[in-house]
Design a protein around this nucleic acid. Sequence first.
DNA 1: AAGTGGTCTAGACCACTGT
DNA 2: CAGTGGTCTAGACCACTTT
Lengths: 235, 235
Amino acid sequence: MSTAATPLYEKVKAHVLKRIRSGEWRPGARVHSEHELVRELNVSRMTANRAMRELVQSGVLSRIAGSGTYVADLRSAGHPLQIRNIAAEIKERGHVHRAQVVSHGRVAVPAEVRAHLKPRGRELFHSLVVHHENGVPLQLEDRYVDPAVAPGYLDLDLSEVTAHEYLMEAAPLERVEHVVRAIVAPARVASHLRLAPGEAALLIERTTWRRGRPASFARRDPAGARFARRGVFAQ
Amino acid sequence: MSTAATPLYEKVKAHVLKRIRSGEWRPGARVHSEHELVRELNVSRMTANRAMRELVQSGVLSRIAGSGTYVADLRSAGHPLQIRNIAAEIKERGHVHRAQVVSHGRVAVPAEVRAHLKPRGRELFHSLVVHHENGVPLQLEDRYVDPAVAPGYLDLDLSEVTAHEYLMEAAPLERVEHVVRAIVAPARVASHLRLAPGEAALLIERTTWRRGRPASFARRDPAGARFARRGVFAQ
DNA sequence: AAGTGGTCTAGACCACTGT
DNA sequence: CAGTGGTCTAGACCACTTT
């Protein structure tokens, strides 16, 4: 019953999607149950189940055990935006990426970082790096790393390896959280990015979790006007 | 063999994740095959398969049919950020959302919009709405809509129905594109959002495709400092 | 030829919902 | 109570890769 270009569960999905797109099943309406799909389409229940589960996962349907499966209301659904690695992005554009290391050492835990990282020790590793695209400063990266998670962080040559690449090897990434906002670039940021006084900048705060706890906190300041590109770039 | 708080396939996932987190299986390494997991954990192959499939879906593993399953290299992978519906977001916080309609009518196609929308006619529908959260202006929405896609747009009461909600009913959403950047709020935006002169604001440009062509273009100006929240909000 | 993932079946038991 | 989704099994056939 297999041997088809498109798998059966995809046909079941298409069958359901068609009825939703045609307006036959409107948001909030109950769709056919798995057993009904089994009878209608001559598939096994596991196949119908997989189709429905994937449609739930993609946000098209929602299910209530014991009750039924309903067409989701996409009106309030979110749309994903990628946060991408800036170095990789610049290279993909065929441009030259250069990382200028401003400082790289140990610091006492700053108060505003304590809200994001709760290190066991009293010190954090810190680095301040300016990323350039074809010689133009594009982003300031202010990163704090828990020594317990990445003890070798100070030995890195950050002009060669991005902190993100190293941290991925030191400990796998479990969770990432981003906060994006707009600010008027403070003097320190403006000077590194050669921004005019009062120029706007995006501020991206990124916290990563590794080994079950927050392991690094980074502030990114991409130059506002130079960043009129698709998506948001960090890492 | 069921009757457990956590499903078996979740246990299989945990089993695999544990070995990855411990460093036993590094990025690029081959992990145990489905049959091996079946023997190790005494589960059926369908259960092992579901576990592995979900780990692929979440980006932890990648599979090559006929060859094996490998630990994915997350180093250059992107991370999603949600672009959410501001009205829904405000309501979820239990706050009051109010949409103040500044203008709502027809306009000749502005030059800077022509880059995003290529309407067949000479006019576009246009609306300018300020979104308030508990009385505080939070976002300015400047939207252009192709009359061919949403002929009823001018009949809407935008203080009751968000444009997004209406457009979802008029024609299904096929594609969305966002450009995010930081700007110093121009005077017009600053006055609507009651921002101080020179204050920074996020600018989100959003183009939606419906019926195979660009159907609406919207500029969103969320107030920068008031928006120190997780994620980016638009729609 | 042996191993791998991709798919599919025809049953099953469970907890829960709704009438 | 019948119906629903959630899970699980023990097989199976297939196309493909690797040795």
